[in-house]
Nucleic acid binder design. Sequence first.
DNA 1: ACGAAGCTTGACCATTTGATCAAGTTTTTT
DNA 2: AAAAAACTTGATCAAATGGTCAAGCTTCGT
Lengths: 227, 227
Amino acid sequence: MAITQHKTGRSAIAKGVRQISRASIEARILAAAESVFAESGFSGATTAEIAKRAGVPKANLHYYFKTKEDLYRQVLQGILELWLGTGDQILPEFDPAQALSHYIAAKIDLARQRPLASRVFANEIIHGAPQISDFLQDELRDWVDRKAEVIDGWIAAGKLKPIDPRHLFFMIWANTQTYADFAVQIAAVLGRTQLLPEDYDKAGRQLAEIILQGCGLTMPAQWPPAE
Amino acid sequence: MAITQHKTGRSAIAKGVRQISRASIEARILAAAESVFAESGFSGATTAEIAKRAGVPKANLHYYFKTKEDLYRQVLQGILELWLGTGDQILPEFDPAQALSHYIAAKIDLARQRPLASRVFANEIIHGAPQISDFLQDELRDWVDRKAEVIDGWIAAGKLKPIDPRHLFFMIWANTQTYADFAVQIAAVLGRTQLLPEDYDKAGRQLAEIILQGCGLTMPAQWPPAE
DNA sequence: ACGAAGCTTGACCATTTGATCAAGTTTTTT
DNA sequence: AAAAAACTTGATCAAATGGTCAAGCTTCGT
């Protein structure tokens, strides 16, 4: 939903300068906000710092986003969409090994491409998910219920060792997000200043290996899985 | 190290009322601080709230802990000790399946018994580990290096499938801590308001099963492993 | 062209909050 | 017992910060 209702009689294609600049400035602010919230958490983030990174005066930020909480909610909203956008191959007709390794690869990819998003999400959950408990209880729970049915189906068909599908998801989530959320810890242990592409590759491959073999499956020939 | 140097000529056994009350009040404040930091993060926590939960006036809290950051550092210090206190069975002479399942069980236990500590730690890392990067780069890295050698030894002896020991640790850490750090998410997906003992049991057992089998090992007869 | 709507921004304000202080009380030392 | 050290706490302060405002500027609809 939009923050403000703007009544313009314009057609969708002929956007005025205003709508374009509004969209781009909101995007800049949201991106800046994501990085500040990731670094400092909700309370630690200041609207002044977000405005600075977005390159706008603070008062302008408050023109587009009424309150800091408002801005935070919209950042989260975008992140939640990322969350459910993965796992589209976990369907009865797919091969379990293929589907799971695809899901793991996609999640590792997200950790690599959007670590800030992951950290904002993690922070929100750790502190009790004050803003997104509805999402967790409704949309996410339903998503998992549906996917768990698929996996139970695979198990019933003897394609998979009997395991609890939900804990399997917790396992995949934890293992992939850890490379975003705890990157500094992992980098420190590896003797790096930051994680490198090969770290993510290795992490993803070994994770898939262990989880698949742990479920009685064998790795697909191709890794990382093709799209 | 102590915050203040107190010069008392007393013997160690005959502690005065002061030393006893000091120890207990500091412990109360530290416990209160852990819970507030876990809930709200460093920036979100207020010394007023910590003092309230500890049952002391705010000025008194600042008498024992000069600054909020000081207090935070001491809370972290205690947590770091927990961290390295586990994994004592990962030694060459032990059986890999025994040692790993013991470690996993111990870590799951920590997630169940000390979720607040886990959350404070997670929060610190997510936000770049400003206070404990030395710990990560020195003590933790050394610890992992030593344990990785043990595991490489097992691999060389053919007791274990070849895997990267470090990523194995990341996997165990991520999976066990997720039940503390992301408890609200997991509870929501499971349709609970909070995690139950059986959830931790199941999590630990399945985690051990998948990881062990993923490493080419078989579960020890006994679970959870005896001390 | 021109009035209305939308946008920009420096200055400002109210609240929160970490930290201090000073005056008093209790315990310890000698 | 008396001085010193340690502890307690209500009151207070300065800085940080989320949010507002009013005055001016730009774009849009007609």
